[in-house]
Design a protein around this nucleic acid. Structure first.
Length: 489
RNA sequence: GGCCCCAUAGUCUAGCGGUUAGGACGUCGCCCUCUCACGGCGAAAACAAGGGUUCAAGUCCCUUUGGGGUCACCA
């Protein structure tokens, strides 16, 4: 390890969907470490996968991170000495660096088609051999490769991993991690579309942006070997590696936290009434402890008390109950004025009312009728018990009803945005797909989303309610139905 | 399955060789009280197992078991 460099850390989210709590979690530790050490906290957008990138995602990530209060010193929207901070705008860096590796012989061009790779995989699986690229192009004459590439032949650039020997790196929290070179593939560095893979972009950017400590989730530990080989190939000094434990799903399923099973979007927490300071505090107790018996602390206090020694490595379960309790503590101690401001920022504001009013205006005779009529617009999870009788479809088993509801939710996973039109489209398609009477199909969704037998036009209600709340209620209803009415509310 | 990481109550954790194994969420009980909350008090609940090392092991080592991660032209 070299002499201490100025601390520079980064959070590098991929704009592929909703802002993830895992992003906030890792951002928190990066942020706290930067503040603790007087270093810089950088936000970098890793949008090198054009097939998965979603246009609305980046802005949501900015908003969500700002909402919890983790602000960055350098980033795509605020600029900085190492701009641009969006990988799609740094393409030339990756191409240049890939070329460097090609020239030094640390990488090679691979002309294997996806087709051949797929067949190879099938064959390897059949023979129960370890899978992976067979390095067919590794032995190709570099000059010939250059010519073929110049001739326009599609190819990728692969890293020449060592063939044998140990590959080790030091994780600040775990010590030396040792793996064998034979366990690695010749990882693709530059894709055939000319964009880099995570490994190349990450290493190049971290170096160019002078990142001193890579603080990321544990899922990256198994690919860090590739990164250290890359650093060595470039002749660069690698940063310190610190892998934080992974947040996990509650209940029997203890896999890493995922949106199919739990609300994972920061927007969900915001929309369902959690306070940013409570969420941040809660995240701070995941894998880290303040010391003593302290569990409630502010960001500033966490920075003050922060030390890596206080990180525990067991992957924590993200349990809403404790988050809710913390949130309660913050609400109770808040000044009335502050609390009022919170409510206003949350839903008691003109923006939100303007969304509801079109749905309510023609249904009320006096102002006093609004709140009772639109009560479900100000709720989080609903209680389905009184509606039990309404939550079935004739001739269909509860399990199938539940599955159908889940299938409806799934329709939105791949789609960008959230609008009345889009919801209407999916609902129509779904209604046809399930083949139930429209009144049954939509009735089911109505009860799930509003907790009532009657409501304004569903797609408009869902649009106003927001994606996260709508999604969660549909899932909860599915859960309720599948459990035969016994699911805890 | 190979490899890697991890292991104190249902959950989050304290513990860094000698503790009646501490705190918190949740659960249950009692008290407060016009109700409901809040609050207060209390209870049940953990060192995964087996071997070592040591005068002494939740703490150090090994094995087993369990959980997780990862094995892409995704990050």
């Amino acid at each position: 390890m070299a002499a201490a460099r100025p601390v520079r850390v980064r959070i590098a989210p991929s704009p592929t969907g909703d802002p993830h709590v895992g992003t906030a979690y890792i951002a928190l530790f990066n942020y706290v470490f930067a503040r603790k050490t007087g270093g810089k906290f950088v936000l970098r957008i890793e949008d090198t996968d054009q097939t998965r990138a979603r246009a609305d995602s980046e802005g949501m990530i900015f908003d969500a991170l700002r909402w919890v209060g983790l602000t960055w010193d350098e980033g795509p929207d605020v600029g900085g000495p190492h701009a641009p901070y969006r990988q799609s705008e740094r393409r030339q860096h990756y191409v240049d660096h890939a070329k460097l590796l090609l020239e030094s012989g640390a990488a090679y061009r691979c002309f294997c088609t996806e087709d051949r790779l797929a067949k190879l995989r099938v064959q390897q699986q059949a023979e129960k051999r370890t899978s992976g690229y067979d390095r067919q192009c590794r032995g190709l004459d570099p000059a010939a490769g250059r010519d073929r590439a110049a001739g326009g032949e599609a190819h990728v650039v692969r890293l020449k991993m060592p063939l044998e020997g140990p590959i080790t790196f030091k994780d600040q929290l775990r010590g030396e991690v040792v793996r064998q070179a034979t366990e690695f593939q010749d990882q693709v560095l530059l894709k055939s579309d000319g964009l880099p893979t995570y490994h190349l972009a990450n290493v190049v950017d971290d170096h160019l942006m002078e990142i001193s400590h890579v603080i990321r989730a544990e899922e990256w530990i198994s690919t860090t070997g590739i990164h250290v080989v890359l650093y060595a190939a470039f002749g660069w000094e690698p940063p310190e590696f610190i892998h934080m434990p992974l947040l996990r799903n509650p209940d029997k399923d203890k896999t890493k936290i995922s949106k199919r099973k739990n609300p994972v979007s920061i927007n969900y927490y915001r929309d369902s009434g959690y306070l940013p300071q409570a969420l941040l505090n809660f995240l701070g107790t995941m894998g880290w402890s303040f010391g003593g018996d302290r569990e409630k602390f502010t960001l500033a206090e966490m920075i003050e008390a922060f030390a890596w020694e206080r990180v525990s490595l067991g992957a924590p379960v993200f349990d809403l109950k404790k988050l809710t309790w913390l949130n309660e503590q913050y609400i109770h101690e808040m000044s009335l004025d502050e609390l009022a401001e919170r409510f206003i920022a949350w839903r008691l504001n003109k923006d939100y009312l303007v969304k509801l009013l079109p749905l309510a205006q023609k249904r009320i005779k006096k102002l006093d009728e609004l709140i009772p009529l639109t009560e479900y617009f100000f709720s989080g999870d609903l209680d389905y018990t009184p509606l039990h009788a309404e939550m079935g479809v004739p001739e269909v088993t509860p399990v199938d009803v539940s599955k159908a509801l889940l299938a409806f939710v799934e329709r939105f996973e791949a789609r960008e945005g959230w609008s009345t039109e889009m919801i209407e489209q999916e609902m129509t398609a779904w209604t046809e797909a399930v083949g139930w009477k429209v009144s049954h199909a939509k009735g089911l969704i109505r009860v799930a989303v509003t907790g009532r037998k009657s409501s304004p036009e569903l797609s408009a209600v869902m649009a106003a309610l927001g994606k996260e709340i709508s999604r969660r209620r549909l899932r909860k209803a599915a859960e309720y139905i599948a459990s035969g009415g016994k699911a805890k509310q």
